[in-house]
């Protein structure tokens, strides 16, 4: 039963990892940008949530009302102000610029919030649990998993069923021809980054409720998100959820064997998938 429990808890944890990954996946899909600062932006979401909670006394989940639009605005400005200038055939500029951004963000967090670990208090939600078939499931992990499914379904809908998603796909297919349709790719990329950071805001708040975080917490989050994307297969949002779940389960099962093995087991699961299925488990068949 302990093992079943570990698998179930890992699955729910996978929801959070899928949220880490969704923004990364979206950005890569639209503009082939890999954002090294993605993890730090997740942590930025958590700090913004913390600030709102401290200033207003709101419940952290309600802080989303402020944090999501703020992060979306930051995303749009960041993309149009800096990141658009890095896009081109050369992969170095986006990599190195987002890497620099990552270092800047971490040190801004240090200046603003000190190195002490912080956490958001979600009250009774943190300890509430429901009993299902002899397993005790935390309400917060369940809620996180539900939100992950909702977010991915929404992204999927936006991508494949709306004019905005059509524009995303057109720009992704062929930037030059998309411009001929009157699409300003800089604006479209800005919107994509805004959407990605809106999702990142949700991920950051849920992270900050679940565990404590500090200015350097971003690197690990980037890696988890990245691993979920690669395990699931590039460009496949639902695959990303599966990737997150596999990563989460590997971690909780690893921790069950030996607490020191929790993170290592997750990375090993990723490396095993990379060794046997380099394109991930569910690569999108590009049409």
């Amino acid at each position: 039963m302990d093992w079943v429990n570990a698998v179930v808890q890992g699955t729910l944890l996978g929801g959070l990892y899928a949220l880490f990954a969704a923004g990364l996946s979206l950005i890569f899909g639209v503009m082939r940008l890999v954002n090294i600062a993605h993890g730090d932006l997740i942590v930025l979401g958590a700090y913004l949530g913390l600030t709102v909670v401290m200033a207003t006394g709101l419940h952290p989940l309600l802080a989303l009302v402020f944090v999501v639009p703020t992060m979306a605005a930051i995303g749009y400005v960041l993309q149009r102000g800096i990141l658009n200038k890095t896009l081109g055939d050369d992969i170095l500029p986006p990599l190195l610029v987002t890497f620099g951004l990552s270092v800047i963000l971490q040190n801004l967090f240090l200046e603003g919030y000190t190195a002490d670990p912080q956490k958001m208090n979600a009250g009774a939600l943190e300890t509430a649990s429901v009993s299902v078939g002899g397993l005790s499931l935390g309400v917060l992990p369940l809620l996180t998993f539900g939100i992950a499914i909702f977010v991915i379904a929404s992204l999927q809908f936006i991508f494949y069923r709306t004019p905005l998603g059509r524009s995303f796909r057109a720009v992704s297919d062929n930037q030059e021809i998309a411009q001929l349709m009157g699409l300003n790719k800089r604006h479209i990329f800005g919107l994509a980054m805004a959407l990605a950071l809106a999702v990142t805001a949700i991920a950051g708040i849920l992270l900050g409720i679940r565990t404590s975080f500090d200015p350097t917490a971003g690197g690990a989050r980037l890696i988890y998100g990245f691993e979920a994307v690669i395990i699931g297969g590039l460009g496949n949002l639902w695959g990303t959820l599966v990737g997150g779940v596999i990563l989460g389960v590997a971690q909780t099962v690893g921790a069950k064997i030996d607490p020191g093995w929790q993170l290592l087991a997750g990375h090993i699961a990723f490396l095993v998938v990379l060794a046997i299925r380099p394109n991930g488990l569910f690569p999108r068949v590009s049409g």
Binding site: V34, I91, F226, P278
Partner: peptide
């Protein structure tokens, strides 16, 4: 990690470093 291309290769190298550290 040579199976990862471009920027994903970069993050892959970071994973390796984490595996070493852990």
């Amino acid at each position: 990690i040579f199976r990862l291309r471009g920027a994903y290769f970069a993050i892959g190298t970071w994973v390796i470093a984490e595996v070493f550290r852990l």
